[in-house]
Design a protein around this nucleic acid. Structure first.
Lengths: 346, 346
DNA sequence: TTGTAGGCGTTATCAG
DNA sequence: CTGATAACGCCTACAA
């Protein structure tokens, strides 16, 4: 590998000058700069990023931690691609690189590993859950002044950097849409309350229902684990109380689709016999039959803002910590929740 | 940050000894080791990975490069999750980290950037295409002795590290399956020939057809771009020749599903009026209606083997380059290709 | 505008 | 078995 020293020799300047040229620092004679660049090109010199990190005491890496969930595919392709791309775009603009960290359930407790080894300057954390162990790990990170930003998850009572979507409003709008279509008996298929998303959606659901003068019936609420399979299984339960159900609001697309599949096997077709609306507006929503209405979430933008926020706090000792961003969502109407036979017949 | 020096002082040994303890090198008195570990624990010492990389002249990072394609979602969640997890697992076993590099079309030419900055010791390259520019970039990498491994793509005539699935055999089996079900008029919806996958699938298709004594009719072959939309659009063309089509073999699940959607709008239902089989056995195959038969590809294992292969070649000057792995696939039968009304009626 | 020199935290070699 | 001590490639005051 060709080093700065060789460039300096060829260009007949000091090594410091070479650095200055490459870092665009200080005033310098154009001729000098020219000579250095020429020499660098001739030799094929490129600064050694590791050495730079070492000297600057900054890795230049943004960590992205995401839990690996073998069975439950927590993330849709859409989520994945969008959020990573968002992070990637921001990161690139700031000259950072992305270090991916796949957590197995075992080392969830150990968010600190990445930082301690100083391979990342900050982290964006995806797929966090509100558990005791995660709370304490994150608190510890914060105490140590290690910058991180949570995406799509909040921790009530704690003041972290958080970028989220407005799931309360999104859910409210989704249920409102169902109400507007004339449905009254609206069931809710939620995910685990360990995700604040789930709590938000419940809130939006309740708000819309109460506002419409309807009662919140616990027997109309179901909990899955965000997998298609769980939605499929819950179809059986929904089926049992089918005479009380006109529509279902599901907390994500996968469960909604699983539900549709389960009910279809019993002869109930979404968009005809009942209405469904999901969340995320993932690819699956367009792939399903009928196409699934869903709440669109700006994942790309969320990734981008999370990266921006956390990188901004790198220099300063997390002084400005506690920024909470909440981006707007948008309801996408497709056939699964359109006025169908149900309304006419009920 | 607490450094080795402080540990050495507290433990009353030299810095070198601290390093030896942490690297498990050389014989050493258990008592010494104990003292060092104790001191390290007391102080909360953790080796600085950047400094280690610097001293070892190895980053300890495996680069994963993947093209960012805004519109066409090249990778399914399944592909993504599985292959990254496979790479991740292998990488972790060897104490490496993952550096993600999202390429925009512009810098596709510039695979070398990551290496030159020496932030990665090797790369796994996903989503490569056989174009002139990519060929030459890769050749250049090889000439410079920079280790990389391609996943799911080969370059005829060149000798790279390549981990692929046996798409020829997979496609052969898929078409055989359709033939076994009694279908004879089998159309083929392929992807771009820039992907060797596509060429392989064509080969498998042709082999099965010829073996069955059928002719290869160019008018029965279509080319999409692996997106759902392209499948949807091609449905119109298939529809035009519907009297000549009993079944379709599609080069991936997305196109298969798009096709099903397009044909459904015209009243043609998969598994009833015609058969379809896709490729990848992605989540979408289970989400679609009817569930889509597909060719399962061992992505996790491919990622793992790619990582293993490329990391193995890090030390040695890519002496053993040119290893070509081809993993087996498996046909998964679902309703979309099951014996339906078609056969009975035709 | 440019050069000098100390330092960054390890690894690794070589004595002892 | 353990301790010195030179790298490693670059950054960054401080000097000139």
């Amino acid at each position: 590998m060709v080093t700065r020293k060789e460039v300096a020799e060829l260009a007949k300047v000091s090594e410091a000058t070479v650095s200055r040229v490459f870092n665009g620092l200080g005033p310098m004679k154009p001729a000098t700069k020219e000579r250095v660049l020429e020499a660098a090109k001739v030799l094929g010199y490129h600064p050694n990023a590791i050495a730079q990190s070492f000297a600057r005491r900054r890795s230049g890496n943004l960590g992205v931690v995401l839990p690996y969930m073998p069975k439950v595919h927590l993330f849709s392709a859409y989520y994945f691609a969008e959020i990573l791309s968002g992070i990637g775009e921001q990161v690139r603009e700031q000259g950072y690189d992305l270090l991916l960290s796949l957590l197995t359930p075992d080392d969830e407790l150990d968010y600190g590993r990445l930082y301690r080894s100083q391979k990342v300057d900050a982290c964006v954390i995806l797929g966090a859950r509100d558990t005791e162990s995660q709370r304490s790990s994150l608190l510890q990170l914060q105490e140590q002044g290690l910058p991180f930003c949570l995406v799509n998850q909040r921790f009530e009572g704690l003041s972290f950097l958080e970028v989220d979507a407005d799931h309360v409003e999104g859910s409210y709008q989704a249920v409102r849409h169902l109400l507007d279509e004339g449905y009254r008996k609206i069931a809710f298929l939620n995910g685990s309350p360990q995700y604040t998303n789930s709590l938000d959606r419940l809130q939006g659901y309740q708000k819309a229902m109460l506002e419409a003068g309807l009662t919140i019936d616990p027997s109309m609420q179901f909990e899955g684990n965000y997998s298609r399979t769980s939605g499929y299984e819950i179809a059986a339960k929904v089926w049992e109380i089918r005479d009380q159900v006109e529509a279902v609001f599901a907390a994500n697309d996968r469960m909604a689709i699983g539900l549709m599949q389960g009910l279809r096997e019993r002869g109930w077709i979404a968009g005809r016999d009942y209405a469904v609306i999901g969340c995320d507006d993932s690819d699956a929503a367009k792939l399903s039959d009928p196409p699934l209405s869903s709440i669109k979430v700006p994942f790309f933008e969320m990734g981008k803002q999370a990266a921006r926020a956390v990188l901004a706090s790198v220099g300063q000792g997390s002084s400005e910590s506690g920024l909470q961003v909440k981006l707007p969502t948008e309801v996408k109407i497709r056939q699964s929740s359109k006025l169908g036979a149900l309304r006419a017949g009920s």
